[in-house]
Computed example of a mutant assay.
Amino acid sequence: MTKSKLKKIVSSALVANLIIGSVITALPTQGAAVENTATGNSAEKRLVSNLKANQNLLKNTSFASTNTGIADWSAEQHDTAGSGDPTNIVPYGTKDGNGWFSFATGRLAIRPFDNGSIELYSRADSRNGITQTINTIPGQTYTISYDYNTTKYTTKAFAIGTATFTQFIVKDVATAVELKKDRIDTGGNAGWVRYPSVENRVGNSGTVANTFVATGKTTKIYIGTIMSSQDQTNEMYQTISNVQVLGESTAQLEAPTLQPVKNQDPKITGSLNGSIDTLQEVQIYKNDIYVGTATVSGRNFEMAVSPSNVGDVYKAYAVDIWDVKSNPATQ
Rank of each mutant, 00 (worst) to 15 (best):
T136N: 01
I268K: 07
I130G: 08
K171W: 01
K45A: 09
I221K: 00
G129F: 15
K95C: 00
S12H: 04
V296Q: 06
P28H: 11
K5E: 09
K220T: 06
A104L: 08
T66D: 03
L47M: 13
Y222N: 04
N128P: 00
Q331M: 11
A81H: 09
V202S: 12
T66V: 03
G106S: 09
I276P: 03
E254L: 12
N41H: 08
N115E: 09
N149E: 14
N54H: 11
M303K: 05
A13E: 04
T136S: 10
S205R: 09
T136P: 00
G216H: 00
I160P: 00
N210M: 00
F103I: 06
S83F: 15
P86C: 11
S42A: 15
S275E: 05
A214S: 04
V170Q: 09
K5F: 14
P28Y: 11
A81E: 07
I134Q: 04
K171N: 08
D96N: 14
W322F: 15
G206A: 09
K286S: 10
G129K: 10
T330G: 00
K267A: 14
V243D: 01
V261H: 02
P260W: 03
A190R: 14
T218W: 04
K156N: 13
L258Y: 05
R201W: 03
A174T: 12
G139N: 07
V282H: 07
V10Q: 11
H78A: 14
H78T: 11
N54G: 10
N273P: 03
Q77F: 14
V208E: 05
Y314D: 09
S297N: 14
A32F: 10
Y314V: 02
T105D: 13
G206T: 01
I70H: 11
V324I: 08
G270H: 04
T233G: 11
S249R: 15
G82H: 13
P86M: 13
V305S: 08
V48S: 12
Q30H: 12
A75N: 02
S12C: 05
A104T: 09
I169V: 13
K180L: 10
P328N: 07
G93T: 06
T37I: 07
V34S: 14
T162C: 10
Y92E: 07
A318Y: 03
T37K: 11
D125P: 11
L272V: 02
R299Q: 08
F158E: 13
W73A: 12
G116L: 10
W100G: 04
N327P: 02
E119N: 10
A176E: 12
S74L: 12
V15K: 05
Y290Q: 09
T330C: 00
N242I: 01
K3C: 09
A190F: 15
Y222V: 02
V23K: 04
N67S: 15
I130R: 06
G247R: 02
G292W: 06
A255I: 02
N300W: 05
G97C: 07
R46N: 06
K45L: 11
G216Y: 02
L27M: 06
G206W: 07
K152N: 14
L179G: 03
F158A: 14
Q140R: 09
S205L: 05
I20F: 07
S249Q: 15
G187R: 01
V177I: 12
E199L: 14
L179N: 04
T155G: 06
